Amino acid sequence: MGLEHWLQSIPDLWIYVVVGLVIGVESLGIPLPGEIVLVSASLMAAKGIVDPLLVGGCATAGAIVGDSIGFSIGHRGGQGLFDRLGRRFPRHFGPGHVGRAKALFRRWGVWAVFFGRFVALLRILAGPLAGALHLPYWRFLAANVLGAILWAGGTTAVVYYLGVAAERWLKQLSWAALALVVVFGLVTMVWVRRRARS
C-alpha cells in the first residue's frame, strides 16, 4: 500500500480534528509541531484528499481556542507558572526564552500576540504570557483572532496553491531531477537554519 493510498484511507474528519487539536494544544503553550501539521494537511488538500477551506478553518479555530485557554492559564498562574515550566522544560521555557518574549510584549503590547503567531517561540508563549502580564482580554482576543486567521488561512492558501503548482510541475520531471530538487531544498533549509541561529 503506497503512502498516497494510505493517506486517502484516513477519514477526512480525523485529519481536520488532528489539525485543530495539535494547533490548539500548541497555542495553549505546549510545544507541538503545529506548523508541520498545518503544512502537511495543506499539501494533502493540494492532492484533493481534504478540503483546504476546512483545513484552514480548523487550524484557525484551534489557534483561537488554544490561545484563549493559554491566556486563562497564564492569567491564573502568573510568573510562577513560567518559573515551574522553566525548571521542567528549559529548552522551551527557560529564563532566556521567556525573558525575550516578555521584552517583546512590553515593547509591542498586543501586537506581539498578533505577530507572535508567525514566530515559533512566541506562538507557544503568546497566550499564557499575555495572561500572566495581564493584557486586557478583549485586546488580546482581537489580536489573537486576526493573527490566527491570517496565519492559518494564509499558510493553508500558500501551501495549497504551491502544492497544486508543484504537482503539475513534478509530473513533468524525471526521478533524477526530483531527487536533485529534494537535495537542493534540504541543503537550503539547513543553510537558512544555521544563518538564523547565528
Rank of each mutant, 00 (worst) to 15 (best):
A132Q: 04
R123S: 13
V113M: 03
H92V: 13
K102H: 05
V119Y: 07
F114C: 00
G109F: 00
W111R: 09
A130H: 06
R117L: 09
R106E: 01
K102A: 03
V98R: 12
A103I: 06
L133F: 04
F115C: 08
L125C: 10
R100C: 01
F114S: 00
R91P: 00
H92K: 05
R123E: 14
V113G: 05
H134Y: 04
G116Q: 02
R107W: 00
A103V: 10
V110A: 10
A132R: 02
G94F: 11
L133K: 08
H97S: 14
V113C: 05
P95F: 11
R117A: 15
L122S: 07
W111F: 10
K102F: 00
R91W: 01
V110L: 02
V113H: 03
F105L: 05
G127K: 08
G116K: 03
L129T: 12
L122C: 07
G94L: 11
F93C: 09
R117P: 08
L125P: 10
P95I: 05
A103M: 12
L104E: 06
L133W: 04
I124V: 15
R91Y: 00
R117E: 12
V119K: 05
R123W: 12
R100G: 03
F93R: 11
G131P: 08
L129V: 13
W108G: 03
G109A: 07
A120I: 15
G94I: 10
F93I: 13
H134M: 04
G94K: 08
G99D: 07
G116Y: 05
G99Y: 08
W111S: 01
L122A: 04
A132P: 04
R91E: 00
G96E: 15
P90M: 11
R106S: 02
W111T: 00
G94C: 09
W108L: 08
V98M: 13
G99A: 15
G127S: 09
H97T: 15
R123L: 12
I124A: 09
P90S: 13
A132I: 05
F105H: 05
V113Q: 02
G127Y: 08
R106V: 00
R106D: 00
F93D: 13
A101F: 04
F93T: 14
L125G: 11
H134S: 08
G116L: 11
R123H: 13
F105I: 03
V110K: 01
W111C: 00
R100N: 10
G94Y: 09
F118S: 10
W111Q: 01
L125V: 08
L121D: 06
H134N: 11
G99P: 08
L104F: 10
R117W: 10
G131M: 02
V119R: 04
R100I: 08
L121C: 04
F105Y: 06
A112G: 14
G116C: 08
V113I: 14
F114E: 03
H92P: 01
L133R: 07
P128R: 14
F105R: 02
W111K: 09
P90I: 12
R91A: 06
G96V: 13
H97F: 10
F115W: 12
L133V: 05
